[in-house]
Amino acid sequence: MTDQIDAGLAPVSVETLMLRAAADGRWSYRRLTAALGRGESPDEVARRLAGLSVNEPSTVVHSTSWRHRPEGQIVLTYAVCPDPEPHLPAEELPVLHIAQGSAPAAPAPERIDTTNVASHAVRHLAFLMATDAVVRRALLNHPLIARTLEGLAPLTMARLEDIPA
């Protein structure tokens, strides 16, 4: 027996989360999605959704996660930072809450929503800010974002003894 996928549901979709930081350290995001087109890479779809070219020197486009939907779809998530259109309405992230699996061999959370995915994307960028020279160089062009991410870096690299059992 083969799995059937609804013809209206693309098997792979790209989700972009355009991220912005506020002066008080809170994050907001805008979310856009599109199907992966024939001959189009996920990176190209993410840039298209964000309205960016491949030569953007100070905007980071980075794949941060993927998830499986019960309908048989894979969603590839990209963080775009900073938001290329910060004047557009965005959803606020009051806290950065990462969804977690229930056991070491069951990494998929029982429930995951966009705020969990956006929180993971912000934390992922904080990790990259601390470990990836290309990302760091781009984000240093945005002092507020760089400062806010640097403030999160200790959370992304917690020592094992600091993690609750």
Rank of each mutant, 00 (worst) to 15 (best):
S63W: 10
T148I: 01
L96H: 04
L125G: 10
L144C: 03
L88P: 00
E161V: 11
W66G: 10
Q73P: 00
V45I: 14
P84Y: 01
A153V: 08
G51V: 12
P86W: 02
L149I: 04
G101D: 05
P86A: 05
A50Q: 11
D3G: 11
A138P: 01
P57I: 06
R69N: 10
A126C: 10
R30I: 06
G8M: 09
S13F: 07
E161N: 05
E85K: 02
R38K: 14
A46F: 04
F127Y: 13
P11R: 15
V135H: 02
R111M: 11
D24N: 15
D43R: 09
V134L: 09
V75I: 11
V45R: 14
R20P: 03
L140I: 01
A99C: 08
R31V: 11
A121M: 06
T148W: 00
L125T: 04
L19W: 03
H68C: 08
I163W: 07
D162W: 08
E110M: 02
I74L: 12
A50S: 10
R20A: 14
G51N: 13
R159Y: 11
S58F: 15
L144A: 09
L76S: 04
V134R: 14
H120C: 01
S53Q: 13
L155D: 07
V95H: 12
N116M: 01
A118H: 08
L32N: 09
R111S: 10
L128W: 13
A103Y: 06
H120G: 08
P164A: 06
A7H: 06
Q100R: 15
P104C: 00
T64F: 03
M129R: 14
E91I: 13
P11H: 12
V95C: 00
T33Y: 02
V54R: 15
A158M: 12
L9N: 14
S53R: 12
L76E: 05
V122C: 01
E56L: 05
S28K: 05
A118L: 06
S41E: 11
T131W: 07
P86L: 02
W27F: 15
V12D: 02
P107T: 06
L76D: 00
Q73N: 10
V122H: 02
R26L: 07
G151V: 01
I112Y: 06
P154R: 04
L88Q: 12
A126K: 12
S119D: 02
R47S: 08
A22E: 14
L144R: 11
V60P: 00
M18S: 12
I145E: 03
E44F: 07
E150A: 06
Y29Q: 08
E71R: 13
E85S: 03
G39N: 00
A146I: 09
H142I: 09
L19E: 01
V45H: 03
H120F: 15
P154D: 03
I145G: 10
V54E: 12
L128E: 14
A153G: 02
R38M: 03
E91H: 08
S58V: 14
L19H: 04
M1A: 12
